[in-house]
Simulated assay, not measured.
Amino acid sequence: MLLKPRHVGVLIGSLRHGSLSRKLAKALIARAPATLDCHIIEIGDLPLYNQDLDSSPPPAWVSFRTELEACDALLFVTPEYNRPMPGCLKNATDVGSRPEGTSLFDGLPAAVVSVSPYSLGGFGANHALRQSFVYLNLAVMQQPEAYIGNVSDVMNAHGAITKKETDDFLKTFMQAFERWTSTAQTAAEDFDTFLARREQISSEYIQGKAAPLIAISTASDPATFFPPNGNPVVGAEKVNAANTMSAKIFGKGSVGRFEVFQSGSSGGLGFWTGIQHADMVMEGKEERLTMQLRTTEVFRIEQGEWKLVHRHADMGNVK
């Protein structure tokens, strides 16, 4: 199953339209693997963070926070101003992390690239950002580090990379970042705990309650459901509609359990496979139906939560 590209927000620490940082950010985006969907989030119009405005945030804050909320990862590209990061970038992290307790940075995979026309490559700004990110709980890629010094010697006035060594490094960096965005994803709930909750949700579903299942199901493609009747359902909207409709055939008093043969999670994905046992009351009927389904389910982390993206169920014993 091919997963959709991860949505990467690119924040640039220079506001100048023709800045070296912006040119390099575009060069990095051009070298990103197809599994990363990178776009620049503009920060130049953000009013300075002021706690007095928390109750009625400026429209620019709202728009910026909405863009952040849609991101699966962040890439920061920054020059160095008087050794630390530029003020506009610090302000952006303040706006995105407040009000207290609502930070949109928490747990996101991230990477930092610093740019300079001088030999140190913006080392000070790079590490000033990293220090701030410790508190913001951004999961920052440690290697490879990226300090692009003497940038005018490796990039022309139009932003084209002119040295093969730099071109190769930028490609390597973005490939490493792609791997990092996959392995660094974390969920607020560990997978074993989630799987126990998934079993309870299954029992609620066969009592006619579709809402709990829909809540843990992805709303984004790709999503697939291979039901026992052999007619696959493809697409999140269609899968959720099918699950909502099917719940209506079940009545109160049904009970179920999972017999898990194998389960696990890694790199933002989780799965279980085994037998789904169900002793069901059908809506409008008195007799009970006992069923066993050979089941495999796949989940992925979306915005810090496990979401069901694939379900395959084959009919076992029916009584």
Rank of each mutant, 00 (worst) to 15 (best):
M174P: 01
E199T: 12
S203D: 07
E189I: 15
A160D: 15
H158F: 05
D153I: 01
G159E: 07
D153S: 08
A211F: 11
K164T: 14
H158E: 11
I201H: 08
G159Q: 05
G159P: 10
F169V: 13
F191T: 06
A196H: 08
A184K: 04
A157G: 09
S203P: 00
Q185T: 06
A219W: 09
T193F: 10
S202C: 07
T183S: 14
L213T: 11
E178W: 03
T183V: 14
A184T: 13
G208I: 05
E165G: 01
E189T: 15
Q207Y: 00
G208N: 02
T181K: 02
R179Q: 13
L213G: 00
T183R: 15
M155S: 07
K171Y: 06
T162E: 03
K163E: 12
F173C: 02
I206N: 02
K209Q: 15
E178M: 10
A157L: 12
T166F: 09
D168C: 14
A215Q: 07
A215M: 00
Q175Y: 10
Y205R: 00
A215R: 00
R179S: 12
V154F: 04
W180M: 08
L170T: 07
Q175H: 10
I206S: 03
T162A: 14
T186H: 12
Q185H: 08
N156H: 13
T166A: 13
Q207V: 06
T162S: 07
Q200F: 10
E189W: 10
I206W: 09
K163T: 14
M174Y: 07
A184E: 10
W180G: 09
N156Q: 12
W180Q: 09
F177M: 11
R198L: 05
D153N: 09
F173P: 01
E165I: 15
S203W: 05
I216C: 00
L195D: 07
F169A: 05
G159T: 13
K171G: 08
I201D: 02
A184L: 14
K164R: 11
L213V: 15
T162G: 12
T218R: 01
T172G: 12
K209G: 04
A188N: 06
E199K: 04
Y205Q: 08
Y205S: 00
A187K: 00
R197D: 03
